[in-house]
Nucleic acid binder design. Structure first.
Length: 115
DNA sequence: ATCATGACGTGCG
DNA sequence: CCGCACGCCATGA
């Protein structure tokens, strides 16, 4: 059975909106354990059947995708993200500064209106 | 209760 | 920018 932290993790991942991505460490922090990034990865690996999670939107802090992805090939995750509108740099890493999921954030990025 | 493992993150060189 | 070592957490034998 999954611990409370794990359940919390699933709940957070489920809230990641379309076209947005979050990092393992970020989720861990949102779940209350900033240092449980690794546990997040473990949680994603043991996702309960019947539960539909956008786990493909969970990536590394540096924007790279996990190697040996469970979907079959890392390419799959890349395709899915790309299809959602996620953009990558020349090095094949996600532009986190542009697609990072932030709870409570409005649709539009809207930078500080300095006026 | 202890040891080893893994879809992580950070610091250094 | 890349690679490596160490630290952290939850899980299973």
């Amino acid at each position: 059975m999954a611990s409370e932290l794990t359940k919390h993790i699933y709940q957070i991942v489920q809230d990641i909106p379309y076209g947005k991505v979050a990092t393992y460490g970020q989720i861990a922090r949102l779940a209350g354990n900033p240092r449980a990034a690794r546990a997040v990865g473990f949680a994603m690996r043991n996702v309960p059947d019947g539960l539909c999670l956008p786990c493909h939107r969970v990536i590394f802090q540096d924007g790279s995708l996990c190697t040996g992805f469970a979907f079959g090939d890392p390419q799959i995750q890349y395709q899915m993200l790309k299809k959602e509108g996620i953009t990558f740099d020349a090095q094949g890493r996600v532009r986190l500064d542009r697609h990072r999921y932030i709870p409570g954030q409005r649709d539009l990025p809207v930078e500080c209106p300095i006026q």
